[in-house]
């Protein structure tokens, strides 16, 4: 069974989708990610889809699910590197990916995640400099 690898980097999980996604593979990724977030109490998930040529309604829904479930588990999800043609197609298809944070590339995605984590901290505890 093919699997999409999930890398753990400190408090983050990093997924780079390099293969052609079919539905079962995407569903497995969803459940694997939820398990990993739980197991490691991860605070952020970065999904790099720059090598993905098609995001249809199914894949779009999976990305939305991942974002939603990670939120429940107190983690943020950022999808990075969506090809412009894919983004335009998704809008025309009628799936605007609401609720999914996006960034241009992995670096910008990391910055966004860190900002979100800092935001979380100021809401919960106001004067801590240790946010790991």
């Amino acid at each position: 069974m093919e699997k999409i690898p999930i890398l753990k980097m400190g408090g983050y999980l990093l997924v780079t989708i390099q293969v052609d996604l079919y539905d079962r593979l995407a569903l497995n990724l969803e459940s694997d990610l939820v398990n990993m977030i739980n197991k490691h109490s991860s605070k952020g998930v970065l999904i790099d889809i720059s090598a993905v040529n098609i995001v249809d309604s199914f894949m779009g829904r999976i990305l939305g699910n991942i974002a939603q479930m990670s939120k429940i588990l107190d983690a943020h999800t950022v999808v990075v590197g969506m090809q412009p043609a894919v983004a335009i197609t998704l809008i025309e298809l009628g799936l605007p990916l609401s609720g999914v944070h996006t960034a241009l590339n992995v670096e910008k995605g990391m910055v966004l995640l860190q900002e979100k984590l800092l935001g979380d901290d100021t809401v919960i505890t106001d004067d801590t400099d240790d946010n790991t």
């Binding site: 995001v55 249809d56 309604s57 199914f58 043609a85 894919v86 335009i88 197609t89 025309e92 298809l93």
Partner: peptide, 17 residues
């Protein structure tokens, strides 16, 4: 072109599913 190809592939993916 890339955009037309992406649209075609996405439509095809919906219909085949």
């Amino acid at each position: 072109g890339l955009l037309n190809k992406t649209k075609l592939l996405t439509a095809a993916s919906e219909l085949v599913r």
